[in-house]
Design a protein around this nucleic acid. Structure first.
Lengths: 339, 339
DNA sequence: TTGTAGGCGTTATCAT
DNA sequence: ATGATAACGCCTACAA
């Protein structure tokens, strides 16, 4: 596979390995034009490619970072990842991507392996369950940035959506449009899933703040596949809320499935707003009002912090990035025609 | 960062480095229970982590592959990538992901860098423009698999959609449903973009085969952002085809934008079928008939071949994976109500 | 059953 | 200006 080494180049160019090394590292200062030319020739002729692994061993740096995510198939993840890769590309760094499926065991294994592989840093969407391991990473002064979730008791850079604000934006909008009976759909409550928890809490808070009723049957926190069934049940009993807040794209899809199956009209029969600006939001009928996460900014911020950590000690900080309400037609005022 | 080495463990356990090495590589056979225990203890106590880089240097294998794609944001890419990562996970391999944006320069740079990094293999969505480089990789016996596109004159494993079949499936379906005036929307023609070329050709072929008219104004190969404008122009002149075949998700979106803006009804005013099973296909109204690419299978096949290459010489092959028509409502028979 | 010595392909130090 | 030599951390004969 890889056969020709620096020694071969040196021999062919009639110089020592050290000189070749100098050349490769562009320390031309004391090098004669002549030598330089001979080395260049030899490299070309032999199709020599320096072995970065050997260099890494010596220099203790691999120019590689590990990115550990739940599932690359989620749009947020993909976008964050794209931003990370773009920034790494500029620094001639590479990105190793790992999917955990939110399984702490897999997460642990990946962190251990990447650590052993001497990656220069980690960007992690943490499961939150490997507290000891996270701590050890910090102690070892490994550069680490968390994205999407934080973990209690871990003092580390974290880049998160401002979930309170996201919900507030959506709720204020709905209320402003005249909706009073508002429901929420979310996956099952799980305390370590920060965004979910924060969103559900903020939802309750927004209702309380506006003196609107909090009906528990309208707060659907349920496995995604059961959500549309729950909505069916409400419809059956004529107890649908006027508007629904979907806390992410997955739950939004379930609501839309339900709406289609029941042939309801949005926003007349039920208004809809969601976090995550799905790609079809503007071509759906009616177009969907959404609260967009600044995914690229999140990726950029995370990478920026990681490089700062690699550059030297900095004290950990938490960043809350601002969501953006994109008004379309799915939650227009009651009575307005949707479109 | 990483301070404790095998020597430290050896010293603490009162054995030699080789013994520790034996232990790490699970060659326990001739090792006393006692020694084993001492080593385990030392490792635990020192929180020792073997340095995989050093190991790689010796063993000439990094257990890492490079995956070079156009853009991870494309759904097909994401899904293929997920499949690749899953399979690599089973083999304790890692995946480095690189975005080229279809820029040959970036592609070249990535291949060079990953090669220097001694990755054990490549899975590439090739731009097709670095022919010399591809050839050198093959000559160097680097394991390589192409996905989505092949490159003329490069003898290498390739995993592609059966594009002819995909178009045929869609066209037969449309024709069977009674459509005779059928148009196509695609990004601009570019010979090296295999899927696009094959799909456009197959489209013409299907019309010819069915003795249907080929109207050039219905074959829209245009920058995506101009597509809906072109459709507008046709509508203006009352020259819309009865049905449109969108060759991918991007062009589909443009058609849907047009349809929404003009308030047309699918399939009554215009029927629609597309390659790529977009996530909202079933919740759109009407639900969208699509031709799905077997993205996961493509990723699995590519990875399988890559591992086979790493296992030993095999002769390159081209794989054409079968698309699948998913019938929904957007191209139902003329006259039928579209649910 | 365990230890010694050399090598993997670079880089860094110090001579020359 | 260039070269010799010793690391880097691990693996592998081979020796003991």
């Amino acid at each position: 596979m890889q056969k020709v080494t620096m020694a071969d180049v040196a021999k062919l160019a009639n110089v020592s390995k050290s000189t070749v090394s100098q050349y490769l590292n562009k320390r031309y200062e004391y090098m004669s034009e002549e030598t330089r030319r001979r080395i260049a020739g030899a490299i070309e002729q032999l199709q020599y490619r320096p072995n970065v692994i050997a260099r890494s061993l010596k220099q203790k740096s691999t120019a590689t970072i590990g990115v550990i995510v739940f599932n690359i198939l989620h749009m947020l993840t993909t976008q964050v990842l794209r931003a990370i890769e773009d920034m790494c590309q500029q620094h001639d760094f590479h990105v190793i991507v790992c999917n955990t499926d939110d399984d702490p065991e897999k997460e642990k294994k990946y962190i251990d392996m990447l650590w052993a592989k001497q990656v220069d840093g980690f960007i992690i969407f943490p499961t939150g369950k490997n507290v000891d391991l996270y701590k050890r990473m910090i102690e070892a002064r490994l550069p680490v940035v968390f994205v999407d979730r934080t973990v209690e008791g871990i003092d580390v850079d974290a880049v998160l959506l401002d979930n309170e604000r996201a919900v507030q934006l959506g709720m204020h909008y709905l209320i402003e449009q005249g909706y009073k009976h508002i429901g929420l759909v979310a996956p099952p409550f799980a305390p370590h899933v920060i965004p979910r928890t924060e969103r559900i809490n903020a939802f309750r808070y927004a209702l309380r703040e506006a003196n609107l009723p909090i009906k528990e049957e309208w707060i659907i926190t349920e496995q995604v596949k059961h959500i549309s069934g729950r909505l069916d049940a409400l419809l059956q009993r004529n107890k649908l809320p006027e508007a629904i807040f979907a806390i992410n794209d997955l739950t939004l899809m379930e609501v839309l499935t339900f709406v289609k199956r029941r042939q309801l009209t949005i926003p007349h029969d039920i208004a809809l707003i969601s976090i995550d600006d799905v790609p079809f939001a503007s071509i759906y009928t009616p177009s969907l009002t959404t609260i967009a996460q600044p995914a690229f900014e999140m990726g950029e911020k995370a990478t920026e912090r990681l490089f700062m950590q690699m550059g030297g000690e900095i004290s950990p900080q938490m960043f809350r990035l601002a969501p953006k309400l994109i008004e379309r037609d799915s939650a227009k005022k009651r009575g307005d025609k949707g479109e």
